[in-house]
Nucleic acid binder design. Structure first.
Lengths: 329, 329
DNA sequence: TTGAAAGCGTTACCAA
DNA sequence: TTGGTAACGCTTTCAA
């Protein structure tokens, strides 16, 4: 049923080798034969099997993307921008949700290796390094996005989390806040954000939040509500909150309003990622913006160059975040 | 570098045919040989190449998912639930954004056919039917999700849009509203939702909104803000708005508040999809809920059964939406 | 119970 | 400029 290179060869009265050459624009073929073959291909609506092609050692033009959770708007927007950029270069993306689970990370990597994807874009947490090492050992192109792995010589794309945290602190302090709560899960990128945040406070000789706790669990909004309640019920409550992503910030806003705190008068809030959430919440959310489309494009550009053997100068791209000031501060 | 069936065969001192049989649990193999081969496979960390397997006519265990826009939380959540369910059955999902573009729909379908995906889940608009017909003619499994194609004998999974619209109308009318604006793009599902909505109004002999216009453009929130402004500046302004998705509803909320309308006192708003947005906005949003996890699971179940040749009784699944009442009404 | 060999749709080398 | 053919890694049929 399916039309193969043999059908084309037969109908065009040439060998399959010749057909293969015109498909790939290789070798020397007379104009006539080429046009003839092309015509037959069009007539029969021929499409080479990528499967068969891949078996001979060529690429599958497929990339694996490991992401913690598509339902988190930041990752959805990142996945979207990666997919868009991939399409421009004729690549497809297999998206896998890991839920921050090391087991799933490892399973998916195994599976996608089996499927012979040309490269991996890792946006998952990877607190566990073994699967990534496997990739590197096997010399499979990898780009890490939204975090860094200084221990490895892998390509990476990220925003400068440290600087983003620094920006957030600076903004809040300039607004007169001294006592600032922090909301975030225990992830590499958040640790960086908090490190940048605290650095600014230290520079200003402002004491750090005394009983900071990382948030557990994946239900961002719910967790943030719970934790914000705790912070606000403190004897000496914070006048501002820095949330390590917009979802957490949305939870903080909700909790604050439930307790009849006015934002930003009684409590200022800064989020991170500047996703669509930031303009949907009320009041709109001041948030540290990552240039998501640029990040996505950079991932694809890095990995495709690597796949095609094109040397790149800078293998570790870092974009500057910017502070989007809105009503919440 | 890569370990193949030949390596296993050699090291185990058997033929590749034997190895293949133990891999697939076929034919009759002595316990000893089987265990020996298994041991060697484990030792060499052997993984069959899915590419090579596929070339022999077997499945790729990969599904194509065409979605209009991952950045829309409804589709992100749907994609996530589909991916989750797929993983449970050892399938991977290639996610493609179409931006509601017929050209992209068609390009992606072509490409994924070339890549020999085992089936397609179509959540994109498909106002243009040709690509879908191609799939059907080629006898490639397809399930349509979030809309129906009564013209075709394809499998489908959806919520009952007509009933969802009806529910929304009923709720608003019961709250005393008579003059209700509608926000929605011109899509099949929205036409159904609006049809259901209007049916209820007609049953109650309430006149329909006189100058209804479908919304254009993809920037949901922005478009909704613009259109809501228009509605609210009308001489006889609506007291309620039914938005065909939560993003539009969020835009309506923003526009209303910008104009100092109190919600729900001055303007009630009902959304659709009950995505995470509904509990993030302020006030929280009354929304017609689709059972997204069930819908995702149903898609995968239908298509995998079809792929594996397992007959299914009901090829067109319809889930009942439910109304989640919150602060906006 | 095991294995030889053909076949899946391509590519690429080497001859012609 | 063209074509024959081995090779890619696996499955499957048929013999042994």
């Amino acid at each position: 049923m399916k039309v193969t290179i043999y059908d084309i060869a037969e109908k065009a009265g040439v060998s399959i080798a010749t057909v293969s050459k015109v498909i790939n624009n290789k070798g020397r073929i007379s104009v006539e034969t080429r046009e003839n073959v092309l015509a037959v291909m069009k007539e029969l609506n021929y499409r080479p099997s990528i499967i068969a092609t891949a078996l001979t050692g060529k690429n599958t033009n497929t990339l694996g993307l490991l992401i913690p959770d598509l339902a988190n708007p930041f990752f959805a927007e990142l996945a979207r921008s990666i997919e868009d950029s991939a399409k421009d270069l004729d690549y497809n993306v297999v998206i896998c949700n890991t839920d921050y689970s090391s087991v799933k990370e490892s399973e998916y990597i195994d599976l996608l290796i089996q499927k012979q994807v040309d490269g991996f874009i890792l946006a998952s947490g990877f607190e566990q390094m073994k699967p990534v090492e496997t990739l590197i050992e096997r010399n499979i192109p990898v780009v890490i996005v939204a975090r860094e792995l200084p221990e490895f010589a892998v390509m990476s794309v990220a925003n400068d989390d440290y600087y983003g945290g620094y920006l957030a602190a600076q903004h809040l302090v300039e607004q007169g806040h001294q006592y600032i709560g922090i909301l975030g899960r225990d992830l590499w990128s958040n640790r960086e954000r908090i490190r940048g945040f605290n650095t600014y406070l230290e520079e200003q000789e402002i004491p750090l939040w005394p009983n900071f706790k990382y948030i557990e669990g994946v239900e961002h909004v719910e967790e943030a509500i719970k934790e914000t309640r705790r912070l606000l019920s403190d004897a000496k409550r914070p006048t501002a909150i820095f949330a390590c992503n917009d979802l957490l910030a949305a939870g903080a806003i909700r909790a604050a309003r439930d307790l009849d705190f006015e934002i930003p008068e009684d409590l200022a809030i800064v989020g991170y990622d500047d996703t669509s959430i930031a303009t949907i919440v009320q009041p709109t959310l001041t948030s540290v913006a990552q240039p998501i489309p640029e990040i996505g494009a950079a991932c694809i550009s890095l990995i495709v160059n690597k796949i095609q053997g094109i040397p790149v100068q800078n293998k570790n791209l870092k974009f500057n975040p910017t502070l989007m000031i809105r009503q919440s501060t």
